[in-house]
């Protein structure tokens, strides 16, 4: 495993909005083809870390390297998947148009989308199982389906790293399965995946590594090693309950 190229390096990194430090002393490495889950309560700084990986929030101490470059210079090869419910459902765009947005960087400002752009768009939609909804308006789809469309948009950009912000929130079982499948196939193709989630089961299922966060880092490493009752209790404070010694329920996220 360690022979693989590191795609994300956190080296004692601290991230801050202005003067207010949000995350401190992050340390860890992710390799190509690996997925890391960012786990922690609300307000722990998961979204902030994702923004820092995009170079949108500054690193004030230490170092973050994405694909061997400072985050802001790696954006070309990084795709970001926002939470679907943050987007206006009345916006007049079709599913197809949303996915095509993933190709905008390659298309540029003036050129018309080429046959290749259209083929990539169609294939990306196919991979999330929504090819048959291409012509429909984005907002008419269910929350889970919209999340899949946004993942398809990221896939169409052909990224080497994928950043997903809470993609499983309020998503039905069918869409969750489709999302996990698509993420898995991206990993097989060598992309690295960073996904923030509340869902420990999904972290077990989809991710090789886990980063436990709550302002500080409470653990970073292989999923089985890091998701221990002790560490979860430390991360979530009083809001983690232990069951039968080896299982943990998080009572407040």
């Amino acid at each position: 495993m360690s022979e693989r190229t590191p795609t994300l390096v956190l080296d004692r990194a601290s991230v801050a909005y202005g003067d207010v430090p949000v995350l401190e002393e992050l340390h860890g490495v992710v390799h190509e083809g690996e997925a890391v889950a960012l786990i922690g309560p609300n307000g722990a700084g998961k979204s902030t870390l994702i923004k820092a990986l995009l170079g949108l929030v500054p690193v004030v101490r230490g170092r973050i390297e994405v694909l061997g470059r400072p985050p802001a210079q790696a954006r070309r090869d990084v795709a970001y998947v926002p939470q679907a419910d943050t987007l206006d459902p009345d916006f007049p765009v079709s599913v197809e148009q949303v996915v095509m947005m993933g190709r905008y960087r390659r298309i540029g400002w003036l050129r018309r989308p080429s046959a290749a752009d259209r083929a990539e768009t169609a294939e990306a939609l196919e991979r999330v199982g929504l090819a048959h909804r291409a012509r429909e308006r984005f907002g008419t789809l269910s929350g889970g389906q919209r999340q899949r469309v946004l993942l398809a948009r990221a896939i169409a950009a052909k990224p080497r790293m994928l950043l997903l912000d809470e993609p499983f929130n309020g998503v039905d079982a069918v869409s969750q399965h489709a999302l996990l499948e698509a993420i898995g196939s991206l990993k097989e193709q060598g992309a690295s995946v960073v996904v923030s989630t509340h869902d420990l089961a999904i972290a077990h299922l989809a991710c090789d590594e886990v980063c436990l966060l709550n302002r500080h880092q409470f653990g970073f490493g292989p999923t089985g090693d890091v998701l221990t009752p002790e560490r979860l209790r430390a991360t979530y404070g009083g809001h983690a309950l232990e069951l039968r010694g080896d299982r943990v329920i998080v009572t407040q996220t």
């Binding site: 954006r75 070309r76 990084v78 970001y80 947005m101 960087r105 400002w109 950043l163």
Partner: peptide, 21 residues
């Protein structure tokens, strides 16, 4: 007309637009 794509992306998904540079 020249800026139609970034304008559309920015209107639809501002965070996504920032992330895309």
């Amino acid at each position: 007309a020249v800026l139609r794509r970034p304008l559309l992306l920015r209107a639809f998904d501002p965070e996504g637009a920032r992330a895309a540079g």
